[in-house]
């Protein structure tokens, strides 16, 4: 399990997803809270490059031994890259959720959506309310 931290350079979605925005492309992943709740990730079936994703909607599934969880897009756009390494090592999602455990890269269609995402303190406040 990764150390539970919420890096300052990421934006957070209330469904426990993060986005790292670099120009008009963002990397998506799930937060340390999410990977801990899910347990050991054993399967990630990535969407295809070119697929359109919509903010607040599911774009993929992550599976633990016990359960399947939808992964929610924090922002809208078109998938330009998927993390192929997770096919062989899905546990990277647990071990390094903000690094090697990234899920997809997306060319953003509406950068204004960024305003709706949370900074780390707001996200941590939300976690405190949920637990």
């Amino acid at each position: 399990m990764a150390e539970v931290t919420y890096p300052a350079d990421l934006k957070y979605h209330p469904e426990h997803d993060w986005a790292r925005v670099e120009g008009d492309v963002a990397t998506f992943g799930i937060t340390a809270y999410a990977e801990d709740q899910l347990g050991e990730v054993v399967f990630f079936d990535p969407p295809e490059v070119g697929t359109q994703v919509t903010k607040d909607e599911s774009y993929a599934e992550l599976e633990s031994v016990k359960a399947v969880s939808d992964v929610i897009a924090p922002l809208s756009g078109e998938i330009v890259e998927v993390n192929e390494a997770l096919a062989a090592e899905p546990e990277k999602v647990n071990e390094d959720p903000y690094g090697d455990g990234w899920l997809v890269r997306v060319r953003l269609s509406d950068p204004a959506e960024l305003d709706a995402l949370l900074e780390p303190p707001a996200y941590e406040e939300l976690l405190a309310q949920e637990s």
Partner: peptide, 8 residues
């Protein structure tokens, strides 16, 4: 993701 069951 999967929320923990509430205390209630």
């Amino acid at each position: 993701m999967q929320p923990s069951p509430s205390p209630a």
